[in-house]
Write a protein that binds this DNA or RNA. Sequence first.
DNA 1: CTACATGCAAAGGGTTTGCACGACA
DNA 2: TGTCGTGCAAACCCTTTGCATGTAG
Lengths: 140, 140
Amino acid sequence: MNRFKDLLTRSGVKLTHQRMEIYCEVMRASDHPDAETVYKRVRKRIPTISLDTVYRTIWLLMDLVLITTLDYPRERMRFDANMTPHHHFICASCGIVRDFYSEQFDNLKIPDTVKMLGSVERTQVELRGLCSNCTKRKVG
Amino acid sequence: MNRFKDLLTRSGVKLTHQRMEIYCEVMRASDHPDAETVYKRVRKRIPTISLDTVYRTIWLLMDLVLITTLDYPRERMRFDANMTPHHHFICASCGIVRDFYSEQFDNLKIPDTVKMLGSVERTQVELRGLCSNCTKRKVG
DNA sequence: CTACATGCAAAGGGTTTGCACGACA
DNA sequence: TGTCGTGCAAACCCTTTGCATGTAG
């Protein structure tokens, strides 16, 4: 929590109680809540908070790398007709997604802790980073 | 393509040229297009096609497990303040996402083919299947 | 004090739906 | 020929934005 305050201050961003409550709420949650859910929960403590403050704060926290999205970079839905086992390299900057193949990744040993959660039908590895194009662009 | 026709017929679904073109287009694409992009491309061959037919066909193809989404199950955006390395178990039926930890998965050896695509900063494994709740529900 | 954050309400944009017409089987 | 699929346009819903007010630093 102190780390949170420091980071906000050092980033030149104001420390409001809305921001603190929203961050706490997402931290506390283990169910990967959506914006609406965060909003409802935070409203128990700050009844006057608005949904758009939740959104604005969430994007702020993402810029500060304090939280992430479960989904791919903020985008519309994208589709894939490649139904053979494959994996994804995702560029964090431009959002491009490249398929790649790896027998090693196709056959990962499923941890016992996961077997208790349910049955696994598909294994997919996601590697995130900077694609070579975006790397060049940042250097140049 | 014959497999496609068979599957549609066996599913009691009509084989229209719109459906064929949309499936072909998603098959052919290697860039994980969104609905709008598929729409634009298919329109070159069927100028009168409409965007909502693209959407309806895409959901149909997903039900037939002929294509997938890059994203998590059709949903709103969800957030995660767990910034320590972790992985996800996703239930294909109810959409619940459970975190789990695995040092093996944290330290996967990156294939050389990926190193040529760009630099990897984060490795995350996604295991999809049926959670124990949904398994029970289907059996019961 | 002053710039930045918030709340409200309205706009935006991707996706879905109702309905009448058209086309596969 | 009957049923299902399509196109159109409007509805829907999540998310974003503009603006006046409030507040942290």
